[in-house]
Nucleic acid binder design. Sequence first.
DNA 1: CGCTTACAATGACAAATGTCATTTTTGGGA
DNA 2: TCCCAAAAATGACATTTGTCATTGTAAGCG
Lengths: 222, 222
Amino acid sequence: MTPVSYSTDNHALEIPAPLRARADYLYYKKAQLIYQEGSTPLGAYFVENGSIKIVKLGSSGKEQILRIATNGELLCLSDLFSQCRYGNSAKTLEDSSLLFIPKQDFWKVLKEDDQIFRSLLQQLAQNIRKGNEKIVDLAYKPVRGRLAEALLSLDSKFNTTSREPFQVAMTRADLAGYVGTVKETVNRLLSEFRSEKLISTQGTRIKISDPNGLERISRMYD
Amino acid sequence: MTPVSYSTDNHALEIPAPLRARADYLYYKKAQLIYQEGSTPLGAYFVENGSIKIVKLGSSGKEQILRIATNGELLCLSDLFSQCRYGNSAKTLEDSSLLFIPKQDFWKVLKEDDQIFRSLLQQLAQNIRKGNEKIVDLAYKPVRGRLAEALLSLDSKFNTTSREPFQVAMTRADLAGYVGTVKETVNRLLSEFRSEKLISTQGTRIKISDPNGLERISRMYD
DNA sequence: CGCTTACAATGACAAATGTCATTTTTGGGA
DNA sequence: TCCCAAAAATGACATTTGTCATTGTAAGCG
């Protein structure tokens, strides 16, 4: 089995065998806290299965979702490198299983296997790049555009294979946290999108009917 | 009342000798482009002297300042790690001198000197952390709060030693790009701050009269 | 020394978005 | 199946912020 072919995107990352070998399995139920901002990192977490939101609390307790990690992704890498306390928290969006590798073992593997080290660095650099794009979007793209973009990116992140309706374990409040707004605004804009035939919704589920239309809205302000 | 202590890091980072040994000296005049988003990284840049803005273009050509690098800081580290094109551009804010280390030499040193590697990783992790804080601020803190915060952090970044009036080579447009707004809004808010006796201005210069007041405004929305 | 250009400052206005309050819908257990 | 709590949806309203237009000011250069 050939390991490590980390493409620049987030589809089906493989967890390197040497790390997997030293890992413990952890199971979390939906909406559980994995680690919390301010506490001390004890090791690295890989997402084996499920989805995790990486969040940071903003003004008056609103949570901003920094990113969403799915299968194969590594959490809290930068915190391990920085030797500091956690700079953010991680919570499950749905029932999930993770791999946990204690700090020492983690560093040991990285020391021994330059290949893995490099690929993790690349994952880190990729996160930075995404983060920078998020900054620019937040600074200059209106909520409407950000929401359109978010729907597309979430859809591609979660509906990798199936053509099923967009189904994510995210409430409107989560969506708001992801986009950087409040849930009322999300609802209002989703209503607009609905009447513009860009999406349809049934309960929590959101189905994208016109990806090109959303794409256009998202790019309208670039 | 607890004394104000905004941002405690950046005391004079030293450029590691092994890197310095292999570096070329580059001199840039004010407002010059050092590298541009989309082009291929050839090596690493250290700021020897001066100040650099790391920017990314947003909607309708507005530029968002991702961070400002001063003495001892390394530019474009994540781009070197990611093996991708530059994800942002760097421009001087004032006449500056930089050290340039070609990619190969850079990696060589990192391979040989674990100490340096670690410290650069830490610098990178620190940037990520700052970036995440920027994301949360942009998402949830009003411009007024962000501007107050920016004035304090810029003051501490540039006026490390002297008690001189805040003097940065930044126009109001730069300030707007740093905070994530437009220059008119910056001007309006600076006027407010002025009439609230928090700052005073003479031309481009901004002097902070009441750091605690600004601090309070900045934290008002946390 | 004045000219010219870039920048700062301000006002009027419209649009986007947040807040608060209320109603409707949904989905999971008793 | 019904009921209830949680979530979605919507409306009214205030505020913040961006846009456009104009004026005032400062700084560099011949």
